[in-house]
Computed example of a mutant assay.
Amino acid sequence: MVTYLGIIAAGIAVRQTDRWWYSPGRGRGRRRLATLRDVRTLQRERANNITPVLLLVGHWLEWAGWCLVAAHGGPIGWIAAAVAGAIKMRHLQEVSHFAVHGVLTRTGRTSTVLAEAGVHIPLGFVPVPVRRQRHVREHHPNATIAGADPNLQELHDAGLRTGITRVRFALALVFPLTPTGAAMTVRGIAGNLRTSNTRWWRLAVLITLPAAVTLLLGWQAALFAFVLPRLLLYPQLSWMSLLVEHRWWDAEPVSGPPAVVEAARCLRLYPHNPVLALLARGTWLPYGDLYHYVHSAHPAVRWNYLPALERGIVGTPAYTPSGVLLGAGAVARRHLRALASPTTPQADPLTQETDLITAGPRHRETAHQ
């Protein structure tokens, strides 16, 4: 077991290279982030095509260590590998999210190639250009707008609609874990493959990965480190992140600079609880997802610089909940109140057919991240 944990530690250490290289506190960076221009200048100076490769290699090396834990750790190892595997997939999703925005590497083409090879193909996501269309061009400018935002359509498809009952709302919070949600995940993966002209070899790679793990380490490793996380646990983590990105049903339509527009429809979770914020950043809200408001206002900024932007330049939106489920201002409670309100701004135009609905199958994580 020490050897397996050593492989996991090695993977963590390898991916720290990218974190160190882009760190705003390294070298001259600490005193250069007084303005947005300073942030962008520093990001351009640090941009490279090597440390992002090490970042992805580190994640997959760590995942390989968890495969070994699942293969030899018994029931406790199975549970640990399943949870860790889901977190790894969530991290990989967010890394590729910044590749979709073109800021993972020095060049956009390299970002696309790395995202495809290191995330999208092995995990059965849509091709990067398709995800870029859905996320950058459809979601970002239209966040929370009924009939235009594909993410809002996903929430609607899961049953989050005006007039929802408390029971149905509770089930919607864990939608990927329900039989309907799990079936949708499987259909979503199939739909992802159909969006590519190279669908057969993408399918071959998707199948080969767990098959190879089974041959080398046994079915336990493949089941608990890959299949179970990919089909159930990772989709739930991704779903949770989607729920806490925006004030989906009570956003205030405003005009003005990006920071003003996004402040009216975004939220910032755990602003005064560093322990929960750190836990979220390490598990289900990694690589800048906790700073979704800042990212929405400045989507071309790499995750390394979002905390600095929030602290010194952009600030936080008005809605800064301290919890997801518990507390008077918790995210889930606010969503439920908004859906139960007869004056909800987003009341039911999503029931109409739109281009988003007829555009073909879409998988949750490929649309919102």
Rank of each mutant, 00 (worst) to 15 (best):
G124W: 03
A211K: 08
H292K: 09
I8S: 13
L267Q: 02
G256V: 14
G58M: 03
G327I: 10
D289V: 13
L339P: 01
S255N: 15
S341A: 06
L68C: 05
G102W: 04
T320W: 06
A84D: 10
G159P: 00
P179G: 04
R202N: 00
R26T: 06
G159Q: 04
A71E: 02
S96A: 10
L152D: 02
W249A: 02
Q133C: 07
S241A: 15
Q153I: 09
V261T: 03
I207H: 14
A170M: 11
G74A: 11
G58T: 08
R30H: 14
I79W: 04
V100N: 11
E94K: 10
A212R: 14
V95W: 07
P274I: 03
T208Y: 05
P141M: 09
A183V: 00
E365T: 06
V130E: 09
L114H: 09
V275H: 15
N197C: 15
A34H: 15
V53M: 04
C67D: 09
W60T: 09
N48R: 07
P122M: 10
E62L: 11
R30Q: 13
Y270H: 08
L233H: 06
V100G: 10
T112E: 06
R230L: 11
A211M: 08
Q153L: 13
G25W: 09
L55P: 01
W200E: 08
W63K: 04
I7P: 01
L223Y: 05
R337S: 06
L217V: 09
F226T: 14
D355P: 09
V186K: 02
T343I: 11
R199K: 00
P229L: 13
G73I: 05
R194H: 12
